[in-house]
Deep mutational scan, measured.
Amino acid sequence: MLDDRARMEAAKKEKVEQILAEFQLQEEDLKKVMRRMQKEMDRGLRLETHEEASVKMLPTYVRSTPEGSEVGDFLSLDLGGTNFRVMLVKVGEGEEGQWSVKTKHQMYSIPEDAMTGTAEMLFDYISECISDFLDKHQMKHKKLPLGFTFSFPVRHEDIDKGILLNWTKGFKASGAEGNNVVGLLRDAIKRRGDFEMDVVAMVNDTVATMISCYYEDHQCEVGMIVGTGCNACYMEEMQNVELVEGDEGRMCVNTEWGAFGDSGELDEFLLEYDRLVDESSANPGQQLYEKLIGGKYMGELVRLVLLRLVDENLLFHGEASEQLRTRGAFETRFVSQVESDTGDRKQIYNILSTLGLRPSTTDCDIVRRACESVSTRAAHMCSAGLAGVINRMRESRSEDVMRITVGVDGSVYKLHPSFKERFHASVRRLTPSCEITFIESEEGSGRGAALVSAVACKKACMLGQ
């Protein structure tokens, strides 16, 4: 009897593995994704193909990295998701002549009506938060230079001027797309009239992360975010950046690689679950690469896999709870928690219980395998993109072996128990001629924006502006 049951459990697990095998990517698959990513990057950089390229390769006008001589107080704003952060950054000489960066910050959550109302409502709310922060720190009387981390696709015309191309991540505030974001912020500050600010720089969160990590390690020339969304930036040779005049030196390019796949480059790798996630998203047909990796989508992918296993009578005796059938019910943090389970399955059992399920031991094991399959594919897909960037940098610099540091931020990278190990191992397999160091950014977005502002202020002083 026991043997029969054991055989049935083994057969069930084997069927589960057959279904989950769809998520496995072979090294040849990853090399294919990497080569296609490089081709799209090239198209994004070139003037004649930029418009139709899915990977936009947006110039950021960040050319210099901090040298350690900029000092002063800077205000930093960070808008990239449902939370908005205001930070005071003091850049100065530390002990023994070292450079020191001290920060104080406060988080504000953005109400739904500000995210989806008008641009005026959104930026009025942001300036209200700045006003509140300055009151708390008794700094209303000071006109501070301000660095703005704005983590949406922007076409820069200068370091302090950028046109919002399109909202992502659930934002829909009308009247912002096609307009200068810094102008919208300046107008809102003017409307309030109770404080003055000098907006000197606007950067993407990947750029802010790279600059913040450069402060720790001067070989950091790539910034990457794996959180709600997924994106990367890197220092490109100016001669390859056709959208900006000049051939000397390097400029940081914001790849906006989340949109890779929007022209069909990933079609052969998309599964039924991916198509369902895409169809029910706020932007169907867009940001397809990001939807395979980002935390906004990972939990939902797992939920759809679990429903398939229920329908195949391989999980929960073929019956799903009402909660499990509800879109968004299986949160991405559950994926991390399930994979963090120590082996007694308590954590998995508790999560499934909150979803109205009474799982068996085998159910718990199957749910864990589903989570591992989805998150491992995410790590491997992400590795193909980064390997594409790094191999490109090595080739354009004609280096036999390139040493490089990548600064990384984002909740999936930082909080998932195995993502970074799987990701690092896969990147290294795909970049055999590179020695890569990964560092995690601390308060990256805010500190990085302030350091970019410090560079901009120093330049302005040198130019006598």
Rank of each mutant, 00 (worst) to 15 (best):
D3W: 14
M8T: 06
M8P: 10
E9D: 13
K12R: 15
Q18G: 08
L20I: 13
A21S: 11
A21H: 05
E22H: 06
Q24P: 15
L30T: 14
K31P: 06
K32V: 10
V33F: 06
V33S: 07
E40G: 15
D42F: 13
G44Y: 02
L47W: 11
H50D: 05
E52A: 08
E52I: 12
R63E: 14
T65K: 14
P66I: 15
E67N: 08
S69P: 12
V71L: 11
F74Y: 15
L75M: 14
G80Q: 06
T82V: 02
N83G: 02
F84C: 01
F84W: 04
V86R: 02
M87E: 03
K90E: 15
G92M: 06
E96K: 05
Q98C: 12
S100F: 04
V101H: 08
V101W: 13
Y108L: 00
P111T: 09
E112Q: 12
G117Y: 00
G117W: 03
T118C: 06
A119L: 02
A119I: 01
A119Q: 14
E120K: 09
M121I: 05
L122H: 02
F123W: 02
Y125K: 06
Y125E: 01
S127E: 04
C129E: 00
D132P: 01
D135F: 05
K136T: 10
K142C: 07
P145R: 15
P145I: 11
L146C: 01
F148R: 03
S151N: 04
D158G: 06
K161R: 13
I163Q: 00
K169V: 02
G170W: 02
K172M: 03
A173V: 03
G183I: 00
R186A: 04
D187A: 09
I189K: 03
V199I: 01
V203E: 06
V203L: 03
M210H: 06
S212P: 12
Y214S: 15
E216F: 14
D217T: 15
C220K: 00
E221K: 12
I225Q: 02
N231D: 07
A232K: 00
E236V: 02
V241R: 02
G246P: 09
D247V: 10
E248W: 14
E248K: 08
G249R: 05
V253C: 05
V253S: 01
V253I: 08
V253M: 14
F260V: 01
G261S: 02
G261A: 05
L266F: 05
L266D: 02
D267C: 13
E272W: 14
D274F: 06
R275S: 12
V277I: 08
D278H: 10
Q286R: 12
K291C: 00
K291E: 09
G295D: 02
K296A: 10
E300H: 05
R303C: 03
R303V: 05
L306S: 06
L307G: 13
R308T: 13
L309D: 01
D311A: 06
L314Y: 14
A320N: 15
Q323F: 13
Q323S: 14
R325M: 09
G328M: 13
A329V: 15
F330D: 05
V335N: 14
Q337Y: 09
Q337R: 14
V338K: 06
S340K: 08
N350T: 07
I351T: 12
T354R: 09
S360A: 12
I366L: 12
I366D: 14
S373W: 06
A379E: 04
C382G: 07
C382P: 03
A384W: 00
A384T: 04
V389P: 04
R397G: 11
I404Y: 09
T405F: 12
G410S: 03
H416I: 06
P417V: 14
P417H: 11
P417M: 12
P417K: 13
S418N: 11
K420V: 05
R429K: 11
L430R: 04
L430E: 05
L430Q: 14
P432W: 07
C434W: 04
F438T: 04
I439R: 08
E443L: 14
G446A: 11
R447V: 15
L451Y: 10
V452M: 14
A456D: 09
A456T: 15
C457M: 11
K459N: 15
K459G: 15
K459A: 15
L463V: 10
